[in-house]
């Protein structure tokens, strides 16, 4: 499934033989050895240190799929997440947004209290000029190249072997650099504990054989979670269909939260 994950670039389709790829890797590595001597941190940054899971053996590679069409914006996922993960008020590990695109192409977006209590119906004025409207669940994208992990000065946040981007609250110094670095606003500074906080894909539940609580709570199947290494899993099948998109692809973070039927207006 690895090649389904974005970020593999080849200049020519014929280049995809393993030999030339190996050579490329060799060249890149010898170059980086030189750089390491000259400027270790820079080289480490360039070669994505901090996402060393690739070298580790793992039985699972998890991914998350969000189907925009299926979401009804009821907010049960947000409420469940708040309770499961003890998230303080006005902070969100996951939240819902409502997009309204009018006939003139104006984009109205709102997210009252993160969608915690669902959404009040739109007023008549906006409804009358609406061309399309939909809900967008948002959360940590558990990126393959997480900028938040890259900037953490102490290694308190990391990419786990199975694809989780996690925070070690016993080691976090609370500088909030990772909050700045996240392009998706998925991280927040938890003022109650004085540390950065974010979605963990319910690591504790998944290790216990359960789904993340938001997936569990979703009545319409808009949120799906599964193992990419298992070809029979929902997410593996959906990704094989190749009709997915990710948020802010221009920042090259390679999210492993994939969206189905994501309109281009969504940021």
């Amino acid at each position: 499934m690895r090649e389904l994950i974005p970020g593999v670039n080849v200049t020519d389709i014929n280049d995809i033989d393993s030999k030339s790829r190996r050579e490329f890797v060799k060249k890149a590595l010898s170059g980086s050895a030189l750089m390491l001597l000259v400027y270790a941190p820079g080289a480490a940054a360039l070669h994505g240190r901090g996402t060393g899971w690739k070298q580790m053996s793992t039985e699972h590679r998890y991914a998350y799929v969000i189907d925009i069409h299926a979401c009804i914006g009821w907010g049960g996922c947000i409420r469940a997440c708040k309770q499961e993960n003890h998230v303080p008020d006005n902070m969100f590990r996951t939240w819902l947004e409502r997009y309204v695109i009018t006939e003139d192409g104006e984009v109205y977006v709102d997210s009252p209290d993160g969608g915690l209590k669902g959404f009040p119906p739109l007023n008549d004025e906006i409804q009358s000029k609406t061309s399309i409207s939909f809900f967008v669940p948002k959360m940590c994208n558990h990126c393959e190249h997480p900028p938040c992990v890259q900037v953490c000065p102490v290694g308190a946040t990391f990419k786990s072997p199975e694809g989780f981007v996690l925070i070690d609250h016993a080691h976090c110094i609370g500088c909030a650099y990772c909050v700045q670095a996240c392009p998706y606003g998925a991280r927040f500074y938890n003022t109650e504990i004085g540390k950065s906080d974010k979605c963990s894909w319910c690591y504790h539940r998944v290790q216990d054989g359960k789904s993340p609580v938001c997936v569990e709570a979703c009545p319409t199947g808009a949120r799906k979670f599964g193992d990419l290494l298992d070809p029979d899993s929902d997410v593996a099948k959906i990704l094989a269909g190749r009709q997915w998109a990710v948020l802010k692809p221009e920042v090259f973070t390679s999210p492993t939260c994939f969206y189905i039927s994501l309109p281009h207006e969504v940021v």
Partner: peptide, 28 residues
């Protein structure tokens, strides 16, 4: 430096163990 420090990925190995033992609220 924490004893379980993983120098390859750069994180405290025990963090995963601790996170695993967070009690579940929603049973499913």
């Amino acid at each position: 430096t924490p004893a379980s420090w993983n120098y390859e990925v750069w994180y405290r190995g025990d963090a995963l163990v601790e996170m695993k033992s967070i009690p579940i609220v929603y049973g499913g």
